[in-house]
Nucleic acid binder design. Structure first.
Lengths: 189, 189
DNA sequence: CGATTAAGCGGAATTGATTCCGATTAATCG
DNA sequence: CGATTAATCGGAATCAATTCCGCTTAATCG
C-alpha cells in the first residue's frame, strides 16, 4: 500500500492545489472549477495537477476525501447503529439514511466526482419510464410513495450501472430480473 | 407539437448523418464516434451535426430512437402484460424485465446517451458501499440475492439522481428516507 | 417566374481537458 | 558536501466537443 512517501515539493503543491480548488468552489461553485484556473491560482503548472490527481473528477474526489473518510470510518468501525453492534436491519437502515445525508451535504462535488462532465440528460426516456411506473405503482398500492418507489426500481437499471455489472461478469440479466421479482414480492405487503 | 416540417436538404442531411454514424459505430464502436469524423463521413459540416442533434449524446439518442419508440409503444399501448389490460403488479414486473432486455440490447449507445463523455469512476466509494451493504443484507437474509439487492438500494441514492430530484424540488431527503424504510419493511418477509 | 426571408450550411475559432517532454530539483549515497 | 537519479515541474501542444457567424438556398408569396 504505502508508496515511498511523497517528495516535499509534491506535498506542498498538493496542499496549494487543494486550497486553491476549495476557494474556487466556495466562491464560484463547481462548474467554475477549471483545471487551468486551479493551476494558476495554486501557482503550479497544469501538469502538476494531473500528476497529483489524475483528472478533474479525481480532484473533486480529493476535495471530498476528508468527509468521505469520516463517513466510511463511521459505518465500518464507528458506534452503533451505523457501526458494528446493532442488528443487521437496523444497520442497513442507518447506513442508507446516513448516505442520503452525506450525499446531500456535498451534492455538487459528488456529482462532479461521479461524472466529470456536467452529465447529459437523464434520458428523455428516464422521465417517461418514471411516470409510467409511478402510475402503475399508485394503482397497485394507493398508500405507497409511488414517486420514490419508481426511482428505487428504475435507478438500479440505469445503463451505466448495468454496463458496469454485466461487463465485469458480476451478474446476468436473468439474475437481475429475479432480484427485481424478489423486491416486488414485498410490495403490497 | 409539430414544427413546420423539416426543409428537404435538412432531412437529407439528417439521414446522411445517421447512416454515417451508424456505420462508424458498427465498425469501430461508440468510443470512435467523434463528431468531426461523423461530419466528414456524412459529407456535411460539424455545425450541421449540432443544429440537427444538439450534441453528442443527442446523436446517440437519435441512433437509438427507433427501438426506443417501439419499446415505448409496447408498454404504453401494446398488448398485455406489458401494455394495458393486465393487473398492475403484472405490468410492473413485465415492464422492468422488458427494460432490462431493452437496455442490454443497446448498452453502449445507451451509456453514451446518458453520459456523453466516457463516464468517470463509479465512485471509488460506490464499490465500498456496495460490499458493505451486501454483507449486511446477507447477514439479515441468507436466502436473498444480497449482491443485487445492494445495487437496488444504492443506485437510487446516486448523486446525479438525488441532485436531479432535490434541485427540482420534487422530493425531500426525509421523504426519500421514508421511502427506503418502506422498501426495507418488505425485506425478510 | 423573381423577390424575399428564414432555415440551414460549412468550417474556422473557441474552450477546456488531458498529454507530452525537456528542464528542475529533492532525496540518496559515497 | 558534490554526484547521481528518479520524481517533479511547467506549460506548450494536442484532441474533441461545442459555438459562431457570414454565406447559401429551399420554400413562400405576389
Amino acid at each position: 500500500m504505502g508508496a515511498k512517501r511523497e517528495r516535499a515539493d509534491a506535498a506542498r503543491n498538493r496542499a496549494k492545489i487543494l486550497t486553491a480548488a476549495g476557494e474556487i468552489v466556495a466562491a464560484r461553485g463547481v462548474e467554475a472549477l477549471a483545471m487551468a484556473d486551479v493551476a494558476t491560482a495554486a501557482g503550479v503548472g497544469v501538469g502538476t495537477l494531473y500528476r497529483r490527481f489524475g483528472d478533474r473528477s479525481g480532484l473533486a474526489y480529493a476535495l471530498i476525501d476528508e468527509r468521505e473518510r469520516e463517513f466510511q470510518a463511521a459505518f465500518i468501525e464507528g458506534p452503533p447503529p451505523l457501526g458494528p453492534g446493532a442488528p443487521g436491519l437496523t444497520r442497513i437502515r442507518a447506513f442508507l439514511h446516513a448516505l442520503v445525508d452525506r450525499t446531500t451535504a456535498q451534492l455538487d462535488l459528488l456529482v462532479m466526482a461521479e461524472t466529470a462532465t456536467p452529465l447529459a440528460r437523464f434520458g428523455a426516456a428516464y422521465d417517461l419510464y418514471h411516470s409510467h411506473l409511478t402510475m402503475l405503482i399508485a394503482q397497485v398500492d394507493p398508500d405507497a410513495d409511488a414517486f420514490c418507489l419508481a426511482d428505487a426500481l428504475l435507478a438500479p437499471l440505469a445503463a451505466p450501472l448495468l454496463a458496469h455489472r454485466l461487463r465485469a461478469g458480476e451478474v446476468t440479466a436473468d439474475r437481475i430480473k429475479s432480484a427485481l421479482d424478489g423486491l416486488l414480492a414485498g410490495f403490497k405487503a
